[in-house]
């Protein structure tokens, strides 16, 4: 099937089998390998991207379902060398270790802060319930998002 998706601001047109998930499409067909696959069945959140502004698990969206939509992946967060405040905050607060869950965490954090610019610790933790991190114990991820919220207000 022919699909057209605006990915990180660029219109991409591709002929693709319907069974290909958005995550697979991004990684294998567009070489956007920042979107990671940890479980492939919407359990771990590593593949989170935004689809028309909302965080989704791209392993459980077919690429054909995203036809005509706008997708932002982790590669689309920084403006050139200038990282997004959420990315900066993760670096500042050691919100990542192995880095594998990180893109999904950052993309989910973007959704959390979009809907709730002043989240409490509890709201952040609740917001991250769809994302596993096995390295950090979440401590510094929560701190990073708290810090990002402050920076984004400023």
């Amino acid at each position: 099937m022919n699909i057209s998706i605006t990915i990180n601001g660029k219109l991409v047109t591709h002929d693709i089998e319907p069974r290909i998930s958005l995550s697979h499409f991004l990684r294998e067909h567009l070489d956007l390998t920042g979107t990671h696959i940890g479980c492939d069945t919407s359990g771990c959140g590593a593949c989170t991207v935004t689809l028309d502004g909302q965080a989704v698990k791209s392993c459980t969206v077919l690429a054909v379902q995203a036809d005509g939509s706008e997708v932002t992946t982790i590669e689309g967060m920084a403006q050139g060398d200038q990282m997004h405040p959420i990315q900066e905050a993760f670096r500042e607060h050691h919100g990542l270790q192995c880095g594998f869950c990180t893109p999904g965490m950052v993309m989910t954090a973007a959704d959390i802060l979009k809907n709730n610019p002043n989240p409490t610790e509890e709201e952040i933790r609740h917001g991250l319930e769809g994302n596993f991190c096995r390295c950090t114990g979440y401590h510094n991820i929560v701190k990073s998002i708290q810090h990002a919220a402050e920076q984004m207000k400023a």
């Binding site: 919407s42 959140g45 965080a55 989704v56 459980t60 989910t108 917001g127 769809g130 994302n131």
Partner: peptide
């Protein structure tokens, strides 16, 4: 239900 991402879809 689920989590943010699941609720979005």
């Amino acid at each position: 239900i689920g989590d943010i991402q699941v609720r979005n879809r």
